[in-house]
């Protein structure tokens, strides 16, 4: 096995990886519970996913195949730099294919292609505490979690409806995990929330906040709501202009300077795979915005 002698495998030293793995095991044992861990300085700024990077580093083995996405795309600066980081420090194979990957690090999306057993999805998390919005004191939020004292989470949703007429929260939509812990699924669109119950392992890393949490395979994940305002995983009322998919999360792209727009899959690998297998839009046309994605 050839290794760059300047780095330990996957950058982190073995002690640190062991510490992170212990936190990961604890997180898997208590789904949705935020486990504190001693986050390390990484050679990239916070906000670039240092939490996710540390979790990935602790999970990667030389035989893994890594995919990194940012907002569904493999080619953004953030995704490219993290992929390069692991190519250099762990020499793992990388891919843009969701199917081919054994470990996927993501920011802001869950891939459209259903994940399978044996795969690991690692999320980059900016703010792990879902109750922070209304209760800034950590001593208090910890107690709320311990006592399952979650009325405050509904106060937030109440405020949404009072102000906007419906639950306007469209990212980082709070969920209850296995009937116990309320959890922030990181800023994925609520469209992705139903996919949180999946066959793969989901790991969440918050670097600046020094928290790790997890959703084991097939764990129940319920999006919070009111009886008379049920959770709705909304998306733009369009089909993808490139592959014709009407069941995917879409990005709105401005195509000219006269306000023309089109909607395309945010998951670029999914869209490209569909196009490669002959999928095409029903009719090619740009459209004026109807119901913009929030």
């Amino acid at each position: 096995m050839t290794q760059d002698t300047h780095y330990n495998f996957a950058y982190l030293d073995e002690q640190t990886k062991r510490m992170i793995r212990r936190a990961l095991l604890k997180a898997m044992a208590i789904p949705g519970y935020q486990v504190p861990f001693a986050s390390r300085e990484m050679p990239m700024p916070y906000g670039w996913g240092t939490g996710g990077v540390q979790v990935s580093a602790a999970c990667l083995t030389p035989s893994d195949t890594l995919k990194v996405i940012d907002q569904g795309a493999d080619d953004t600066t953030n995704a490219v730099s993290i992929r390069k980081f692991f190519e250099k420090t762990a020499q793992v194979a990388t891919t843009e294919s969701t199917r081919a990957a054994s470990l996927i690090q993501t920011r802001h999306r869950i891939p459209e292609e259903p994940l399978r057993e044996g795969q690991i999805l690692v999320y980059q998390v900016p703010i792990p505490e879902p109750l922070r919005f209304l209760e800034p004191r950590e001593t208090e939020t910890r107690k709320m979690h311990a006592l399952q004292d979650y009325g405050l989470m509904h106060v937030k949703l109440y405020e949404d409806i009072a102000r906007h007429g419906n639950i306007a929260t469209s990212y980082a939509y709070p969920v209850k995990v296995q009937g116990r812990y309320v959890m922030d699924p990181s800023p994925i669109p609520k469209f992705d929330n139903p996919k949180l119950r999946m066959a793969a392992i989901q790991l969440f890393g918050a670097g600046r906040e020094q928290r790790i949490y997890a959703i084991p395979p097939y764990t129940d994940v319920v999006s919070l709501d009111f009886e008379d305002h049920p959770f709705e995983p909304s998306k733009a009322n369009h089909a993808c202009s490139l592959c014709g998919a009407d069941h995917t999360y879409l990005d709105e792209v401005i195509v000219d300077d006269r306000g023309g727009r089109m909607f395309v899959c945010s998951d670029t690998d999914y869209c490209a795979t569909r196009q490669a297998t002959g999928a095409a839009p029903a009719q090619t046309a740009t459209s004026q915005p109807q119901e913009a994605q929030p």
Binding site: D149, H154, V155, E159, A162
Partner: peptide, 24 residues
């Protein structure tokens, strides 16, 4: 009081804390 929450939310909080889940 929760100063960043509306009057209605302030009054409703205790109800939600004990399980009220019907906005109306």
């Amino acid at each position: 009081l929760r100063m960043s929450v509306s009057a209605g939310g302030n009054v409703g909080e205790r109800l939600m804390a004990v399980g009220a889940r019907h906005y109306g």
